[in-house]
Simulated scan of single mutants.
Amino acid sequence: MKFLIIIPAHNEENNLPFTLGSLLRQSHADFKAVVVNDGSTDATSEVIGRYTGTDSRFTAIHLGKSAHQPGSKVVNAFNNGLHTQDIDEFDIICKFDADIILPENYLKTVTKAFQEHPEYGLVGGLLYVEKGGQWVYEGNSNKHHVRGPMKAYRKECFIQMKGIRETLGWDNIDAILLENLGWKEVVLPELHVRLIKVKGADYTIRPADYYGRYFYFLGLNRFLAYIAASKEAMKSRSAGFFTDIIKSYEGCRSKKLELKISKEERKIINRQRWNMLKKKWLKM
């Protein structure tokens, strides 16, 4: 199986060598890596050049400066890379971040999973971060969700779900849509992917604004958005946090900000979230 790996990179001169170096060490060598230099102002371009100049499997695209928006900016860069390739030439489409270190058997293990399980549509490992000199499980989501930095989609699944959406919440929208199409999202816990820096560290958006916008762009209706906001408020033990999330969510609604998902897809997402709510909270 042949991989198309697209890596958005913005000011990653220190991290990108680790990511690309881990690709060079893969036991499964049938891949093409497209590094999308998204308006970097550091030496990211020079780092990319060291790989594209010596290995034909690596290629680069250089974009101008764009505004930093959580979620949408990285998918925009990904799509710019995707549009330069003929995906019919590949079996697996990957969106990798520029600050991860893959184990040497990553592509080989993902290939085996797809070959042995035709129902698998999205596969990935688990993220680990460095704490106190040790690499420990990140723990930001459940162990059944493939995180954004290391997505590997079966091509047929990727096409059926119409790719990934240029919006906040894309890395949850994809899982919901592919499941609705009959595909499975699978985490391979034996694959430990090292995340060099903490996600979200560069975001300037306040947490409450982030959640409000996230719930809106995910397509949640008012009821489910308010339930989700209350859950986050309980985690932070702050009633004010709930109010701020709702203000952000309602602000997006009043402005009628464009959603990147259709009405039918919003119905699918709300139905899935409601089923999760009944199962986890209401025990129905």
Results as ranks from 00 to 15, higher is better:
residue 84 T to D: 09
residue 143 K to L: 07
residue 162 K to R: 14
residue 73 K to G: 12
residue 232 E to H: 15
residue 247 K to G: 14
residue 254 S to H: 11
residue 228 A to W: 00
residue 173 I to H: 01
residue 31 F to N: 09
residue 126 L to S: 09
residue 181 L to T: 05
residue 57 R to D: 08
residue 143 K to S: 10
residue 137 Y to V: 10
residue 65 K to C: 09
residue 168 L to P: 07
residue 195 L to N: 07
residue 226 Y to S: 06
residue 184 K to M: 08
residue 170 W to P: 02
residue 55 D to P: 02
residue 194 R to N: 11
residue 221 N to V: 00
residue 196 I to G: 03
residue 224 L to N: 13
residue 169 G to L: 03
residue 153 Y to M: 05
residue 215 F to W: 03
residue 115 Q to Y: 10
residue 4 L to Q: 11
residue 20 L to T: 07
residue 239 A to Q: 08
residue 68 H to C: 09
residue 70 P to E: 06
residue 220 L to D: 01
residue 256 K to R: 15
residue 206 R to N: 08
residue 105 N to R: 06
residue 220 L to M: 12
residue 110 V to N: 00
residue 117 H to V: 00
residue 196 I to P: 05
residue 282 L to C: 09
residue 69 Q to H: 15
residue 179 E to G: 07
residue 132 G to C: 02
residue 27 S to I: 10
residue 28 H to K: 13
residue 13 E to L: 02
residue 66 S to E: 14
residue 25 R to C: 05
residue 247 K to E: 15
residue 14 N to K: 15
residue 192 H to N: 14
residue 59 T to S: 08
residue 166 E to W: 09
residue 135 W to R: 09
residue 148 G to D: 10
residue 254 S to D: 13
residue 245 I to E: 08
residue 134 Q to D: 05
residue 244 D to G: 03
residue 88 D to L: 13
residue 169 G to T: 07
residue 269 I to T: 11
residue 275 N to Y: 12
residue 19 T to M: 12
residue 12 E to C: 05
residue 259 L to E: 10
residue 170 W to M: 10
residue 279 K to P: 00
residue 72 S to F: 01
residue 28 H to A: 12
residue 172 N to S: 12
residue 57 R to S: 11
residue 125 G to S: 04
residue 7 I to R: 02
residue 273 R to A: 11
residue 272 Q to A: 14
residue 204 T to P: 00
residue 80 N to T: 10
residue 159 I to M: 06
residue 54 T to P: 01
residue 195 L to F: 02
residue 47 V to E: 08
residue 246 I to M: 13
residue 180 N to F: 13
residue 98 A to P: 04
residue 208 A to R: 03
residue 43 A to S: 14
residue 116 E to D: 13
residue 204 T to N: 06
residue 229 A to W: 06
residue 38 D to K: 04
residue 4 L to P: 03
residue 144 H to G: 10
residue 160 Q to W: 01
residue 147 R to L: 12
residue 277 L to R: 04
residue 173 I to Q: 05
residue 27 S to E: 13
residue 6 I to H: 09
residue 198 V to G: 00
residue 243 T to H: 13
residue 261 I to P: 04
residue 40 S to R: 08
residue 69 Q to S: 13
residue 185 E to V: 07
residue 115 Q to G: 03
residue 41 T to F: 06
residue 100 I to Y: 05
residue 282 L to T: 04
residue 90 F to S: 13
residue 207 P to T: 02
residue 35 V to H: 09
residue 253 R to N: 08
residue 182 G to K: 02
residue 185 E to H: 13
residue 194 R to L: 11
residue 246 I to G: 06
residue 103 P to Q: 10
residue 251 G to E: 06
residue 59 T to K: 11
residue 9 A to K: 12
residue 281 W to L: 14
